[in-house]
């Protein structure tokens, strides 16, 4: 696999504490790479190192197969979590200025900006000062500035905070578009539902170390708890009494003729055995494994145990924000 960015054994010390301890990541080309971790884990430090805002104490960095060097900043776009603009400066002028700092010449920058401003409904505001903009508009403008120079690698730190749901969707679409057009995205967030939605791979950092990494689907699979959701019609025998001795069964809901069960099987028992038993109980409408959400996996890996509701409640796919 080709990697757009690689960090090998990065260590970074601040006076008094270690921000990163022997961290290595490899970001595959044309993917969305999630950088996860609780507050203060060292994500921002890693992002700043990738952006060459600060240098690591130890370790090697590679961009697109080359050793990372200052010129590479032109191929990277960065949207920091705490982001701002010059309040008194007109937005068109300001966008041009920031684009020029990324080595886009003024003429090209203007042309591209007009297109993007049009797309995000900002064009009428070109000559307005930033202080006259709503927060959402300012954020859209920052997004445009980040991607304008068509970077190979984009780094978004909490890009959705402060956006309304409509704009969140607009942004998600654009991020996936960018990936499909060849860009790679490093995506740092606490919003786990969006991680499931758009990330291909993730790295979870806690207390300056990597504690979990890999493909999102594989990670979820490997965290399987053996929980299945079953829908049955024409139930002859209640599943609770039939399977109760072997499995952990609970009735989740019932409407008309349709019964919904949540069943947890013991480790090592093949799921086909369970399905066989269920088939005897009635007509199977659906039989599906319920994998833990990224949210639960995050909490499990950071704190050492799943949140209580995972074992008691049914609502696994709760896409809480």
């Amino acid at each position: 696999m080709e990697y757009i960015f690689k960090a090998e054994n990065i260590t970074k010390n601040y006076t008094g504490h270690k921000a990163l301890d022997n961290v290595s990541i490899s970001v595959p080309k044309q993917s969305v790479y999630g950088l996860l971790g609780p507050n203060g884990a060292g994500k921002t430090t890693l992002i700043r190192i990738i952006n060459q805002i600060i240098g690591p104490d130890e370790g090697k960095l590679f961009f697109d197969g080359e050793k990372l060097k200052p010129e590479h900043v032109h191929f990277i776009g960065y949207l920091p979590e705490e982001r701002g603009l010059y309040k008194k400066m007109k937005i068109g002028e300001q966008a041009l200025y920031l684009a020029q700092l990324k080595n886009v010449n003024k003429h090209d920058a203007k042309k591209k900006l007009k297109v993007w401003f049009e797309k995000f409904d900002l064009l009428p505001w070109w000559d307005k000062k930033v202080e006259e903009l709503s927060k959402g508009m300012a954020q859209k403008m920052q997004f445009i500035i980040t991607i304008l120079h068509q970077p190979k690698l984009l780094i978004f730190d909490e890009p959705f905070s402060g956006f309304d749901p409509i704009n969140v969707n607009l942004l998600k679409e654009e991020i996936l578009n960018l990936r499909n057009n060849g860009a790679t995205i490093i995506f740092s967030t606490h919003n786990m539902s969006s991680v499931e939605e758009i990330c291909d791979d993730i790295t979870l950092i806690n207390k300056s170390r990597i504690i979990l990494e890999g493909n999102v689907k594989e990670i979820r699979k490997s965290h399987s708890l053996g929980i299945y959701c079953v829908e049955l019609e024409d139930v002859k025998k209640p599943l609770e009494s039939m399977l109760g001795s072997q499995y952990n069964v609970s009735l989740e809901g019932k409407s008309e003729n349709l019964y919904k069960y949540r069943i947890r099987k013991p480790d090592g028992d093949p799921s086909n055995n369970l399905l066989k038993s269920i088939m005897e109980a009635g007509r199977v409408i659906s039989f599906q494994e319920v994998l833990p959400s990224m949210n639960d996996i995050f909490i499990k890996n950071v704190t050492g145990k799943y949140p209580d509701e995972v074992n008691n409640k049914n609502n696994y796919q709760n896409n809480q924000i």
């Binding site: 060459q52 805002i53 200052p70 900043v73 032109h74 949207l79 705490e82 701002g84 920031l98 700092l101």
Partner: peptide
Amino acid sequence: MEEKTNRIVEVIISSVK
């Protein structure tokens, strides 16, 4: 101070030293 409190500085120093 304006650049620092505005938080635009992080965007800029990802482009320039």
